[in-house]
Design a protein around this nucleic acid. Structure first.
Length: 462
RNA sequence: GGCUGGAUGGCAGAGUGGUUAUGCGGCGGCCUGCAAAGCCGUUUAGGCCGGUUCGAUUCCGACUCCAGCCUCCA
């Protein structure tokens, strides 16, 4: 039985979609004004893992992940570059798709963009106006009246009075209440705008998610996900908007992934302490990055460090080494291991525990490979199958270990390596150990590790 | 200050009221011409103080420290 930690109730709950067998899931995507960094990548990989696992468990999943393609930062970026907004967004949407595809993130079923849903957005704001949840301010902006939504704060555990008391932000004068948030921004000169009942303007950030989520998935979602840093105010505001407009519960299960840290501090654009996905992929292979992300639980903070990424590489090397030379494809997984893997994943997507099952498999494969290759082969197929659920271990082991597409360094060409190995074999036949070791040291200096066995010499890059 | 969440072995990172997490690293052994890989064994745990219990790392309470949110943020 799948259990998911629900941020709304702050506990794990048995997962029950309200339509049996079907899951409607919405995840907050990115604002496309710059390259994605590791924090974005984590959210993308986590919810990709969630969608994959739900499907493995037999659910028909509709996964929607939005793109915010109109916002102050995008406008500023376009102005800085002397570009049109659509040029900026097109470029960074492409970059995002490339980056996360490299990390093995599958495309969601829909990827709605704010600028393509202004109709739905305006319709929802109109509804909120009609129901008295919104007002037009003196400056022409439309605001949500937080005082009208009695459940405000239920997701974040915050109380409006305390928020007001602790307000540290300069209060926008047009608002009736510092907690009110903008639904529609009146256009300033030279800003992109859409016509609306309240004059030309553009949507506020929070409303787009409410409008697109309900438009794509209906009023009542099973799962809504996003980074922990979106829990308040973004998701709190989404609830206020959606439930205010539809009168129905908006989301059953709220899932929040932990943030990525650098030196025990949040990795973020504003702090400037971030690595873009591209920068990381220049040093590490995509699968290493994906493993790094999945090796800690999705709700824990994830500390970025060289040691962690190097560890991911070492761990994958062990798993692929176990798979090497064994038939890898099969549809059936050994039941005992599969059950343990599922049990881990059923427990709030406990990927570290699930990964530990992969290592137990690798260990058993290594034990059996000599005396019971048939059984070892079966387990190898199981390992590959279960790894695949996490989007791991789908490469040919030799391709991974020999580092085709490995990054960095002045690596030797395969032909050169094989020629040197042949030379060394010749020397070894004559027990010319000095020459043999000379060649092995030479290769080692170039990052190539040799492994002699009864069946010949194999090599890998380290 | 308020609201969330956390504190585990050398590092990373899970589960668990009494029994091996797992990975990286260390140490000893097997294998090897020597290595590497692998295998066998092994070494360091659960912030601090109380409480509940036959027994707590695990449950409860206080304390200390850390992070996130309260401003755009995955």
């Amino acid at each position: 039985m799948l259990q998911i930690y629900n941020s709304l109730t702050r506990k794990k709950e048995a997962f029950k979609p309200h339509e049996p067998g079907k899951v409607r899931m919405y995840v907050c995507g990115l604002t496309v004004y710059d390259y994605s960094h590791l924090g974005h990548a984590r959210a993308m990989v986590i919810f990709d893992m969630v969608a994959r696992y739900l499907r493995i468990r037999g659910y028909h999943v509709t996964y929607v992940r939005n793109i915010t393609d109109i916002d102050d930062k995008i406008i500023n970026r376009a102005n800085e570059n002397g570009e049109d907004i659509s040029e900026v967004t097109a470029r960074f949407i492409k970059a995002m798709h490339d980056d996360i595809a490299a990390l093995g993130v599958e495309r969601p079923d829909a990827e709605p963009r704010a600028t393509e849903h202004t109709g739905q957005i305006i319709a929802m704001i109109t509804k909120l106006m009609e129901k008295g949840y919104a007002y037009v301010a003196d400056n022409g902006d439309v605001y949500y009246d937080v005082s009208r939504f009695v459940a405000y704060g239920k997701l974040s555990g915050k109380r409006p009075e305390e928020l007001r008391a602790g307000a540290r932000v300069a209060v926008e004068e047009a608002k009736d209440d510092p907690l009110d948030f903008v639904l529609w921004k009146a256009a300033k000169p030279n800003e992109p705008s859409w016509n609306s009942p309240w004059g030309p303007g553009r949507p506020g950030w929070h409303i787009e998610c409410s409008a697109m989520a309900t438009h794509c998935l209906g009023n009542h979602l099973d799962i809504h996900g996003g980074g922990q840093d979106l829990q308040f105010p973004h998701h709190e505001n989404e609830i206020a908007q959606s439930e205010g407009a539809t009168g129905e519960p908006f989301v059953n299960v709220w899932m929040h992934n932990g943030i990525v840290r650098m030196d025990d501090e949040k990795m973020s654009k504003s702090l400037g302490n971030f690595f873009t996905v591209r920068e990381v992929l220049a040093k590490y292979r995509p699968e290493e990055v994906r493993y790094f992300i999945l090796f800690s639980h999705y709700r824990s903070p994830l500390n970025y460090s060289k040691e962690q990424l190097d560890g991911a590489k070492a761990a994958l090397t062990r798993l692929y080494t176990a798979l090497r030379g064994l038939p890898g494809s099969s549809d059936k997984a050994e039941r005992a291991y599969r059950d343990r893997f599922y049990a881990a994943m059923d427990d709030d997507f406990n990927t570290p525990a699930a990964i530990s099952v992969l290592f137990d498999l690798a260990h058993e494969i290594n034990r059996l490979s000599e005396h019971d290759p048939a059984k070892a082969g079966q387990l190898a197929a199981t390992l590959r199958k279960l790894g695949g659920i996490l989007g791991l271990l789908q490469d040919d082991p030799d391709v991974f270990l020999q580092g085709i597409g490995a990054v960095g360094g002045d690596s030797l060409r395969i032909e050169t390596i094989e020629r040197l190995i042949a030379q060394r074999d010749e020397a070894r036949k004559h027990k010319a150990w000095a020459e043999s070791d000379r060649i092995r040291d030479l290769l080692a200096e170039k990052g190539v590790v040799l492994e002699d066995s009864a069946s010949g010499t194999t090599w890998r890059r380290n």
